[in-house]
Design a protein around this nucleic acid. Structure first.
Lengths: 210, 210
DNA sequence: GATAGTGGATAGTGATGCTATCCACTATGC
DNA sequence: GCATAGTGGATAGCATCACTATCCACTATC
């Protein structure tokens, strides 16, 4: 497959394909001459994955690169890969990390996790993100919302068992790796979309006469 | 309170406060003279809300403006406000909407919702987002992940009842409005952070010997 | 009366994610 | 065998976004 065909069959514009090649998101094709290279099905798949991570998962190009490097790192096991994926989707940290209010929220986050008996790395980016959200809720005087935390934790724990089981069920490593990435990023997109729909339905039912 | 004090006590730089004023995110202060205005507690609260939506909720400035306009629109009831919030956080749509694969995914999304008996507006942005994610999963050959959809829907439905109940429990309209916005946006941040932590815990437990 | 600060306007900045153009060269179709 | 379309590679340009900086005439405050 030539680069133009790769572009056509993926729906990604040719300059953009070249851009991804430059940025190292897409591995170079097999060189067939000075100015000719052959791209395969793996490239097409990879290109689709890139677009999904960017469009659906809202990852930055840099985040995608990080994820893909982890995917390509044959030495990485499932669990470490998950950590890398989480780091890549973490995004820019809030400015107020380090203030007293944030530290308190961070402690609260650690306590929530500990109370559940969850064993997570204490430098997990998600802990900081949880602290960000808790700090913001407190700062805004919306602490009553924190009553939801238990429900969220309970639900996500149950779901995580299914999710991890699903990925492990695949058996071979390559498929598991892809499963971790897509499960983490696209699964999140599915979950939040469903959450919004559920909210809409429930809010209509509880606040309207019909 | 003068603008400099507003800046200082919110932690937002003065040029940025001016920028938010220009952009209409922050209402102008009460003019006390040609070049002097008075800002109150409401401005401080609003500024904190803006930062939370931007930093924690990953909203764009335009999205924040949309949300805040809805918040300030006294005529909007709880349910419509929720819709507006969902529109504001929707972001840029995927390019491939309209392809056959996407349409199929969109139909699937509609069916999932219908099977649950959820009554949602059929132009809800979350339906398109769900379709985006489903289409991406199918395109990548990760359809086995769709087995999670039931679990997600079940969980989010249960949570939505609690969430909506929590907001309704507030009684007065202004507090409910703030609750909808923070519950939607910051609640999502809390949920996804917890999801990642739960995954990490579960993955460690199921894939490692310890 | 000096000075620091104000609201308002306008311009500049850095990052990001492409997009466009140019180049020397080559596969391909006639 | 030769025109032409396409190639890999390099470099430059562009639009958007979220600020950030500067300037201004003016005024509150010490």
């Amino acid at each position: 497959m030539k680069i133009s065909e790769l572009s056509r069959s993926s729906g990604v514009s040719l300059p953009t394909v070249k851009y991804y090649l430059r940025e190292g998101l897409l591995p170079p094709g097999r060189a067939m001459g000075r100015n000719q290279a052959e791209y395969g099905d793996a490239h097409l798949r990879r290109l689709r994955l890139i677009r999904a991570l960017i469009d659906v998962g809202n990852l930055s190009v840099a985040g995608v690169r990080q994820v893909l490097q982890a995917v390509d790192d044959g030495g990485l096991q499932g669990h470490d890969l998950l950590g890398t994926a989480h780091e890549a989707i973490a995004g820019t940290p809030r400015a107020d990390r380090g203030t007293a209010g944030w530290q308190a929220a961070r402690d609260e986050a650690a306590r929530i996790v500990a109370d559940r008996g969850w064993r997570v790395h204490d430098r997990a980016p998600a802990l900081d993100q949880l602290a960000d959200a808790i700090a913001a809720l407190r700062e805004l005087g919306q602490e009553d919302m924190l009553a939801m935390v238990d429900g969220y934790a309970e639900a996500t724990e149950r779901l995580a068992v299914q999710e991890v089981g699903l990925v492990l069920a695949r058996g071979d490593r390559a498929a598991m790796v892809e499963g971790v990435v897509t499960g983490t990023v696209l699964g999140e997109a599915v979950l939040t979309a469903l959450r919004r729909l559920a909210q809409e339905h429930t809010s209509a039912g509880l606040t309207e006469p019909g």
